[in-house]
Amino acid sequence: MDAALLASMLPIEAIKSADQSVTNSTTLTNDTELKLPVVSGATYRGELVLYYVAPTGNDLDYAWSVPTDSGGRRGMIGPDPTTGAVVDLSAMQSRVSGAFNTEFTLGGAGGSHKVAFERFLLVAGGDGNITLQFAENTAGAGTSATVLTNSHLVLKRVS
Rank of each mutant, 00 (worst) to 15 (best):
144 S>D: 05
108 G>I: 05
66 V>F: 07
46 G>K: 02
101 N>M: 08
74 R>L: 14
70 S>W: 05
58 N>L: 08
38 V>T: 03
132 L>R: 13
30 N>P: 00
53 V>D: 06
123 V>N: 10
118 E>T: 13
10 L>I: 11
110 G>E: 02
65 S>D: 13
14 A>T: 03
51 Y>H: 05
149 T>K: 14
83 T>R: 09
65 S>Y: 13
135 A>G: 04
14 A>R: 02
86 V>L: 11
70 S>L: 00
38 V>P: 01
93 Q>F: 08
39 V>D: 00
85 A>C: 10
40 S>T: 14
16 K>S: 07
42 A>R: 13
134 F>D: 00
99 A>Q: 13
61 D>W: 12
21 S>R: 01
120 F>V: 09
146 T>D: 08
10 L>V: 06
54 A>Y: 02
2 D>G: 15
114 K>M: 04
101 N>W: 11
19 D>W: 09
159 S>E: 11
129 N>S: 10
89 L>F: 12
135 A>I: 07
69 D>P: 07
45 R>V: 13
25 S>R: 10
17 S>T: 15
28 L>G: 07
125 G>S: 12
86 V>N: 03
150 N>M: 09
155 L>D: 01
46 G>F: 03
84 G>Q: 02
116 A>R: 02
43 T>A: 13
3 A>T: 14
73 R>G: 06
45 R>M: 14
86 V>M: 08
106 L>W: 05
31 D>F: 01
102 T>R: 10
8 S>H: 06
137 N>M: 04
131 T>A: 01
123 V>P: 04
102 T>Q: 10
9 M>D: 01
63 A>C: 09
155 L>H: 03
20 Q>I: 00
46 G>Y: 06
16 K>E: 00
151 S>D: 03
114 K>E: 06
110 G>K: 07
89 L>A: 14
29 T>F: 01
38 V>N: 05
58 N>Q: 08
125 G>F: 00
104 F>P: 03
74 R>P: 08
18 A>C: 05
4 A>H: 13
8 S>E: 12
139 A>H: 06
124 A>W: 07
150 N>E: 09
152 H>A: 10
112 S>K: 11
142 G>F: 15
101 N>D: 15
149 T>R: 13
151 S>F: 10
31 D>E: 08
136 E>K: 02
42 A>I: 02
106 L>P: 06
85 A>N: 15
62 Y>D: 09
145 A>R: 01
22 V>T: 06
21 S>E: 01
8 S>L: 07
68 T>E: 05
69 D>G: 08
145 A>H: 03
143 T>L: 11
77 I>E: 09
157 R>C: 09
32 T>I: 12
58 N>R: 12
75 G>M: 15
34 L>F: 14
134 F>A: 11
29 T>C: 00
4 A>E: 15
7 A>K: 14
58 N>A: 14
42 A>K: 11
122 L>Y: 01
101 N>C: 07
124 A>Y: 07
140 G>C: 10
114 K>D: 07
8 S>K: 05
73 R>T: 12
79 P>K: 11
34 L>Y: 03
42 A>Y: 01
125 G>P: 04
154 V>T: 14
94 S>W: 07
35 K>I: 03
88 D>Q: 01
11 P>K: 10
131 T>H: 10
78 G>D: 04
93 Q>A: 07
155 L>K: 04
80 D>M: 03
82 T>H: 12
33 E>M: 10
68 T>P: 05
86 V>K: 11
20 Q>V: 08
2 D>S: 15
88 D>L: 04
68 T>Q: 02
